[in-house]
Deep mutational scan, measured.
Amino acid sequence: HSHMSHTQVIELERKFSHQKYLSAPERAHLAKNLKLTETQVKIWFQNRRYKTKRKQLSSEL
């Protein structure tokens, strides 16, 4: 499990705020920019979407 830097997370968050789903080319581009693997980016987005979904569910209770 590799640790992401604060800067990388900020960039991922910024991208996520604009779009929740990335196409393969977008993911490849973002990964390259942030010096991450595409898998890391993919998993981060999956986890981030899951967290957002959970938060929405709990706020509706």
Rank of each mutant, 00 (worst) to 15 (best):
H1F: 08
H1V: 09
H1D: 10
S2C: 15
S2L: 13
S2Q: 14
H3G: 10
H3Q: 12
H3Y: 09
M4I: 10
M4H: 02
M4V: 05
M4A: 03
M4S: 01
S5H: 04
H6E: 08
H6Q: 10
H6P: 13
T7F: 15
T7C: 13
T7H: 13
Q8V: 11
Q8D: 03
Q8P: 01
Q8Y: 01
V9C: 13
V9Q: 08
V9F: 07
I10W: 09
I10Y: 11
I10M: 14
I10T: 09
I10F: 09
I10Q: 12
E11M: 09
E11C: 14
L12Q: 01
L12R: 00
L12D: 02
L12F: 02
L12P: 02
E13I: 07
E13P: 01
E13F: 07
E13H: 04
E13L: 08
E13M: 09
R14F: 14
R14S: 07
R14H: 11
R14V: 11
R14Y: 04
K15F: 14
K15R: 15
K15G: 01
K15A: 15
K15I: 15
F16Q: 02
F16N: 01
F16A: 03
F16V: 02
S17N: 10
S17C: 15
S17V: 08
S17Y: 07
H18Q: 09
H18M: 14
K20E: 08
K20F: 04
Y21T: 04
Y21E: 01
L22G: 00
S23D: 03
S23I: 02
S23K: 05
A24Q: 12
A24T: 07
A24I: 09
A24V: 07
P25I: 14
P25L: 14
E26C: 08
E26V: 04
E26S: 03
E26N: 02
R27N: 05
R27W: 06
R27S: 04
R27Y: 12
R27A: 09
A28T: 06
A28M: 07
A28D: 03
A28K: 10
A28I: 09
H29Q: 13
H29R: 15
L30Q: 01
L30N: 00
L30R: 00
L30M: 06
L30H: 00
A31L: 02
A31S: 04
A31G: 02
K32S: 08
K32F: 06
K32V: 10
K32N: 09
K32W: 06
N33G: 06
N33Q: 14
N33R: 15
K35I: 03
L36E: 00
L36Q: 00
T37S: 09
T37L: 03
E38H: 04
T39Q: 12
T39V: 08
T39I: 11
T39G: 07
Q40Y: 04
Q40L: 05
V41S: 00
K42M: 11
K42R: 15
I43K: 08
F45N: 00
F45E: 00
Q46T: 05
Q46N: 07
Q46H: 07
Q46R: 14
N47M: 14
N47Y: 12
N47G: 05
N47L: 11
R48Y: 03
R49G: 02
R49T: 01
R49C: 07
R49H: 03
Y50F: 10
Y50E: 14
Y50C: 15
Y50I: 14
K51L: 11
K51I: 13
K51V: 10
K51M: 13
K51C: 15
T52S: 12
T52D: 15
T52N: 12
T52L: 11
T52G: 10
T52M: 11
K53A: 12
K53D: 14
K53F: 05
R54G: 12
R54T: 13
R54Q: 13
K55T: 11
K55W: 05
K55P: 10
Q56G: 12
Q56I: 08
Q56A: 09
Q56K: 11
Q56H: 14
Q56V: 08
L57N: 13
L57M: 11
L57G: 13
L57H: 08
L57D: 13
L57Y: 05
L57F: 07
S58C: 15
S58P: 15
S58W: 09
S59E: 14
S59F: 06
E60A: 07
E60I: 06
E60D: 14
L61Y: 06
L61N: 12
L61S: 14
L61C: 15
